[in-house]
Write a protein that binds this DNA or RNA. Sequence first.
DNA 1: CATGAATGAGACTTCATTCAT
DNA 2: GATGAATGAAGTCTCATTCAT
Lengths: 223, 223, 223, 223
Amino acid sequence: MRAFTRFSNSHSDHKAVDRKAPTKPRKNASQARSRATIDALVEATARILVREGFEKASTNRIAEVAGVSVGSLYQYFPGKEALVAAVIDRHNEAIMGLVRTALTEIADLPIDKAVRKLVTVAIEAHRINPKLHRVLAEQIPRTGQLRDVEAFNREIQTLVRAYLESRRKEMRKIDPGVATFICVSTIEAVAHNTVLHGAEMLSEKMVKVLVDETTRLVVGYLR
Amino acid sequence: MRAFTRFSNSHSDHKAVDRKAPTKPRKNASQARSRATIDALVEATARILVREGFEKASTNRIAEVAGVSVGSLYQYFPGKEALVAAVIDRHNEAIMGLVRTALTEIADLPIDKAVRKLVTVAIEAHRINPKLHRVLAEQIPRTGQLRDVEAFNREIQTLVRAYLESRRKEMRKIDPGVATFICVSTIEAVAHNTVLHGAEMLSEKMVKVLVDETTRLVVGYLR
Amino acid sequence: MRAFTRFSNSHSDHKAVDRKAPTKPRKNASQARSRATIDALVEATARILVREGFEKASTNRIAEVAGVSVGSLYQYFPGKEALVAAVIDRHNEAIMGLVRTALTEIADLPIDKAVRKLVTVAIEAHRINPKLHRVLAEQIPRTGQLRDVEAFNREIQTLVRAYLESRRKEMRKIDPGVATFICVSTIEAVAHNTVLHGAEMLSEKMVKVLVDETTRLVVGYLR
Amino acid sequence: MRAFTRFSNSHSDHKAVDRKAPTKPRKNASQARSRATIDALVEATARILVREGFEKASTNRIAEVAGVSVGSLYQYFPGKEALVAAVIDRHNEAIMGLVRTALTEIADLPIDKAVRKLVTVAIEAHRINPKLHRVLAEQIPRTGQLRDVEAFNREIQTLVRAYLESRRKEMRKIDPGVATFICVSTIEAVAHNTVLHGAEMLSEKMVKVLVDETTRLVVGYLR
DNA sequence: CATGAATGAGACTTCATTCAT
DNA sequence: GATGAATGAAGTCTCATTCAT
């Protein structure tokens, strides 16, 4: 089940996916210097991804941009995939910050207010770093970081479902799983398309219209 | 604006994206032998994409699987990208076959019947070759075939919009552009997530439920 | 010993030079059509050499420009080398036309008139097709056509030497072989440098000056 | 204008010639290890050029002979051309060593002694590494290293011209540019042909004769 | 004879990764 | 730990040549 962020999708039937390189940082970065190096590397990766595209993101280039030697890169990350995964994690974490907060604030709101908030936050989430989001969504062959994104999606599902179940009385009779699936898919899709569409649609007025419409769409559906 | 199929998305802000290798076949292949070779290559590419993943789709491998020499591959395609583009085109064309038919049949139907048909066809479209669809959506760095997919999306937008405008009297007052955007995004998202979710959700009963729900979602929104 | 044309030089100590592909046309072109095809091929080769450089002169390209299929190319020439050799031969033959005529006309002239004529003809020879001459001199790895060029050079040597020996009385006492070597080398060098120097030096006035000076150089040396 | 060394010639009218691959080393090689690698590569290139010919000088072969990996080759040189350019530079530098010295020593000598020295040094220069010289002159398609060789030729022109102008009183009235052109062309041609002629002519006695004759040729011309 | 599709050796180049210093 | 030189597998692509039609 899709979620608020695009670069996602479950299942990995591919053989190719299996014997992949590890994806987690090697050290726990006890020392401050290590921490700084790691940050520089992740940051460099993100910057290259955004500015030059996935193809240019070689380990040598990343190390260079990070102002570090390749050797150091491998000191902290088992390979290129791990770096990309780290960037994704960082981006996901930023998104989840917004989403978790929103879902907390929503808890006591009626459905219409709640949905509006969710739609708003979904768009905001896509706007955190749209260029990075786009690269992550479009240019990166998903082959290893699926697991992480999955977990992330599951969390959103769970939270939204919990909210919907808590508001069952305001809603018509409807399977909570299905409702969650429809809501999350819909909101995410509109947010994704809205933001990734760039210039033409990004006028604040247009965004407001889309928020209104999407809210109407979802609320109308739930009641 | 997204459409009924996923591997898409407009704008390409990357410098890296531009001076890309060509994407169109080299010859027009009048002769039968050529035709067979070309087909074998495209077919091989699709097969590898599905069975082994994008990473394994090297020109040598493709040629090998096609039972053809690399030289022949380059006789007809300027590079790997063009092969992938051909696979995408082929897949898109298959989808467009369904979609165009559906949109024709819809012309005289009332909104509820029409939307149901669209939702159904969207799911069917994603089911034509789900594995391929998934690979296309997830594993392929979009860097050249964008143009084609764009055109494809635009066509869907246009057709749907034309239908909606013809049915304006059955609908509440609403901007046709926005309505189209919302409908297409929504239907596509549900279809995509439904189908790409694989086994668990693919029971026919579940599919029916999702068609019902999505229809309700969209129809409720339009009226 | 060098001669009136540059792309030359004897000896071939290289192992690489030996097991080379043949260099002579396959057929004798009895029919007119064959003749036309052969000419088209040689002409195409020359044109490509001049306009696009040696690197671009692939057999496929040559055939294409000649308006003939690759198959036909191999019908008449055993390989690329043979085509280049044919171009060289044709060019050499054109040069030799001038040179032979000049040497005939010279026979009864005194040394100063004779040398002037030789210098003039050497420059003219280099001017027959300067671009081709340049490509032949600079861009073509000498690996097979040496033999032909050698023969060509030897002929010039022989003719000049014969002339000089016939005029021995006008000259100081000097070894005829040495004199020939010096004369031919000198004249060729000046002609080559003059012509290949392109624009700056090609004013007719300048050419005249150089003819005068070279004549003076050589005549002064011989007497 | 040609110079004391053959593989030269200015102007490059070819489109093909322009957008060529770079020709300069990538790194500056501060470390000793780098230096050794670079030297090994250049040396290997020269060796292959001499022993196996230009055609065999593939990057893989060069790396192999250098006892280094291809990767290392590309670490320091952007491609084959750059390697060949380095070999040429090295050879040119060796020649220029001799030539510069000679031209310094010449400064205060009268024309006849000076010319003799120049002729001698020209032959010596061609003898530094005759086989390499020959390959450089004959087998290498000039497509990138022209610039360097040009500079080299210009330097010689300039130095010789300066000498001639300083000795104007010993000479007949003659345009210094023309005189330089003639002298340099002539001396170079004789030296080139003499040395590249290999065995037959290389007896010391013969060389002496040729030095005498060439000196006489040039000196006679200048006075 | 002509055609041009097919071949495949081999050239070039990149880049993730290792390892001696 | 950090460095960056070195590695080499693997991928891309070209082009001389062959051969079925």
